[in-house]
Write a protein that binds this DNA or RNA. Structure first.
Lengths: 110, 110
DNA sequence: CTTTAATACATAGGAAAACTATGTATATTT
DNA sequence: AAATATACATAGTTTTCCTATGTATTAAAG
């Protein structure tokens, strides 16, 4: 990962967006999808992801469903109604933040 | 401020860029400039800014110069050679991060 | 003229987010 | 059979930024 500090505050947004696009996903699947989409620039560690998923369940943004695959339990996460609402809000916040930073840092449009 | 978490990891970049553009600035001036440039969306508190400035001095990115304005000491900050080099690196990191996030969040270009 | 607001620096203490390290266990590939 | 990939989880730490507080000067408002 380039600079991990920048990821702060965006992990929830990433998770919400992925679940909106894919319906339901399990933890390991999320780490792989993020790695794939980011060309290995964002490498979510399990130590970051699982605590965040648990937190988002506690906050009512996500709900879980357990599937038994052979002897292993796979825990799928999907958006709640609150989670669905949160997606667009978080993305709007992020794009707004980028706009503000572009002005402050005087970035020319790519 | 919209969502303070997003600011994490960008404060150093903001400070470096402002000092590159303005030569030298003092703490209070930085808070006001950031407020102005961001249309009051980024409100740096002194509790965030001063510890970060001190840290950046300790890291060798900034150096200080004291000016006596009446009875008050005003502490100006400016870039060191290392600080000057860091500016473009940090900005490149940030734009790269935006690109990555745009793919992950499937943002269309504004 | 005096009180309030703005200017200006600083630190202590705490919360949040993400990391490293570790642990457990199953499934697949070599 | 061993090594790697899959899959979940938590404890402890670091970093970053915040709130709250403190001190003090200068300018504006009443």
């Amino acid at each position: 990962m380039h600079s991990p500090e920048l990821l702060k505050g965006t992990l929830q947004t990433i998770i919400l967006k992925l679940l909106e696009d894919h319906g339901k996903m399990y933890g390991y699947e999320i780490t792989q999808k993020v790695k794939e989409l980011s060309s290995s620039k964002i490498l979510l560690t399990e130590g970051s992801l699982y605590p965040m998923l648990h937190k988002m369940v506690a906050e009512g943004l996500l709900q879980t469903e357990d599937f038994h695959i052979g002897k292993r339990v796979r825990k799928y996460y999907k958006l709640t109604a609150d989670g669905s609402e949160a997606v667009s809000v978080r993305i709007a916040e992020f794009t707004d933040f980028i706009k503000t930073m572009s002005v402050v840092l005087k970035l020319h449009k790519t």
